[in-house]
Design a protein around this nucleic acid. Sequence first.
RNA 1: GCCCCUAUCGUCUAGCGGCUAGGACAGGAGAUUCUCAUUCUUCAAACCGGGGUUCGAUUCCCCGUGGGGGCACCA
Length: 462
Amino acid sequence: MSNVRVRFAPSPTGFFHIGSARTALFNWLFARHTGGTFILRIEDTDQARNSEAFLKLIYDSLTWLGMDWDEGPNPNGVGERGSFGPYRQSQRGDIYRQYKQKLLDSGRAYEKDGAVWFKLLGERYKVFDDHRKKEVEKVKTPPVIIDDQIRGRVERQEDEDFVIFRSDGNPVFHFVNVVDDIEMKVSHIIRGEDHLSNTSKHVRLYEGFGVTAPIFAHIPLILKSPEMGQGKMSKRDKGALIEEYQQRHFLPEALVNYLALLGWNPGDDREKMPITEIIKLFDLPGVNQSNAKFDGKKLANMNMTYLLEQPADRFVELAATYFRWKNDANVTAAPVDYFKTVMLLAQPRIKSIDELGTYTVYFFTEEYPIDAKVKEKVMAKGDPKARLSELIAAVPAMDFETDATIETGIKSLAEGKGLGFGDYQAVARLAVTGTNAGPSITAIFRVLGKDRVMQRLRRFSA
RNA sequence: GCCCCUAUCGUCUAGCGGCUAGGACAGGAGAUUCUCAUUCUUCAAACCGGGGUUCGAUUCCCCGUGGGGGCACCA
């Protein structure tokens, strides 16, 4: 065990989104890479906006993505683990009050207007602030030097006292954040670049407590894709919520792989990597300095690549989970072997699990839809009606034992008429599946069986 | 407005003074196949601008410009 201690500190005030997930991931990867400790701390001081549902979502999302935490509330929300708790800020009021008192006692804090302010050291002067349209008191202080692991040396001036306890008696974010990181012995703070400007405040606070600040690493942000507009990715943007990918049954390892690549790379051309490899290679200096735009297409492609490589058993299991979740009785009632056969037929041809429903309907019901556009196209070419009746006449005598025997059957029918396999394929597919996309027609015939094929051919021709 | 960060194909990125500027996704074309995908081949596509430093800048420095973030008794 190394003495690296990192934390992910979300607020349960909204849906869990991709930016949070990536911040969590980088912390988790760093902990796993260094053999350190990954802490989950819940910043639930905003009573008005907190909700238990959002809290549960944090546990569920992290768990789904495979990010286990060594300290923090238990994943089921009952009790907690680790010896630096409590890990929910709402339960740490006493600690914050003690730390406030320390500052008050040492003269580094004072009360004003019912609030408690942190006191900067230096010569004071007043100036009119154009932005806030009021006169403010400034303090001449030496610059704060932040030796950031990703940005390098960053210099920033902190020149105004700031509130650490509001007049309603509640501590503010900057204060609790620093106090908790001290108490929990956090060694590296890995967080979004949006906090870089706040860091000078935090550093002054650490100084005020007489504590050495942790090592900072500010990671780039995830921005909207060009189609979505400008600025950083927000909860309202399409594709921003982890929940969405969970519902679409993306493979979590694909999402994690994609997220890892957003702002980090292994230093060579590799993209698709197992998590063990990412852990081995991940390090702070490899993190980029510039923001990255989210690309749903690349993520979809990553998901497809993972899907194609799933072993048969896992894929069938994923599919089964999906249909159970979808509560599709037609499918869940089907015999296990039949289900398995159909799913493995679909596996190499779908891009995501949630396509499975429409892609395989016709295997599970006679009520499958007929695609009107496809129908129009197929019926316009050659003489599909004649081909259809020829098939109806020929199928009863065909050998449905294997794909090969079916192929032979159709081919000999075609040859007898001086035509090709393709002349029968399209109309047969349309009649039996309602679409123009899917596995080979021979496989569809075999799996469906002669009776159902005949029934569908007849019904369609009528 | 002030402060901080940042800048290579549409997007994610490699490059760490001398390269035909590489890969991936997306896009175009083609091949394979009974359809649709997959797969394979192939094409198009980038160093933001201006000054320096240097024999030589995509690379180092400065100034612009663009992009992002922060300036609360929100987190």
